[in-house]
């Protein structure tokens, strides 16, 4: 007569043979049952390692990240981008208004410039709000970083050597082929004078 563990193993094998969705937890359960079926002690090191990995996977709280933190971070970024665009557009409109005013009419010109300057000052308040939205995004990234770093350290997994996915492979190839480095950070890029020298050389 089959033991409860053997029955569980058979059920797991059936699930793997079917087209049902297999989760990481299924794989870990299967590995644990297979070890038991092989006659290893349930308290063996391998078994403990599987339990530890299962716990670490749970500690990633991936559903919490994908349902709460990531959508929220995207919303924060979208709001910051929108606020920046609106401010830039408002400041440009002020500049365009001043550029269109007849400078020969001193009184009208002064009044228009004063109004525009005040509006530009007000529009610059976007930086404070955008900064706060960005801080929230940075906190989400730090949270993900902490969880993944802990997971990688505890599970001892090594990085996959190839591309993470076809989509990323395609994106990376495009970036490399078309030299899409994006804006430089800090002193990473050339200054205009260096570029001029390179072009002249």
């Amino acid at each position: 007569m089959a033991s409860p563990d053997q029955k569980k193993l058979r059920t797991a094998v059936k699930k793997f043979s079917s087209n049902k969705k297999i989760t990481l937890d299924d794989v870990l359960s299967f590995a644990k049952l297979a070890l038991i079926a092989c006659g290893k002690d349930t308290q063996s090191r391998e078994n403990d390692a599987i339990d530890a990995i299962r716990e670490e996977v749970a500690r990633l709280q991936s559903h919490d990240l994908s349902k709460n933190h990531l959508p929220s971070a995207k919303e924060e970024l979208d709001t910051a981008v929108r606020a920046t665009e609106e401010a830039a557009s408002h400041i440009l409109a002020c500049a365009e208004t001043v550029m269109a005013v007849d400078a020969n009419n001193a009184e009208s010109y002064e009044s228009s410039v004063n109004v525009a300057m005040l509006e530009i000052l007000e529009a610059c308040a976007f930086q404070d709000i955008s900064g706060q939205h960005m801080s929230k995004v940075a906190e989400t990234l730090n949270r993900i970083d902490r969880r993944i770093t802990r997971f990688a350290k505890t599970s001892g997994v090594r990085d996959w050597k190839g591309e993470a996915s076809d989509c990323e492979a395609h994106k990376n190839k495009r970036q490399k082929d078309l030299i899409l480095n994006g804006p430089a950070s800090n002193d990473d890029g050339l200054a205009q004078d260096d570029i001029d020298a390179l072009l002249a050389g």
């Binding site: 480095n181 804006p183 430089a184 890029g189 570029i195 390179l198």
Partner: peptide, 13 residues
């Protein structure tokens, strides 16, 4: 452009 790496400038040149 904001692309300011040496390789970008050389490629464009």
């Amino acid at each position: 452009t904001a692309e300011s790496k040496t390789e970008n400038v050389i490629a464009a040149k």
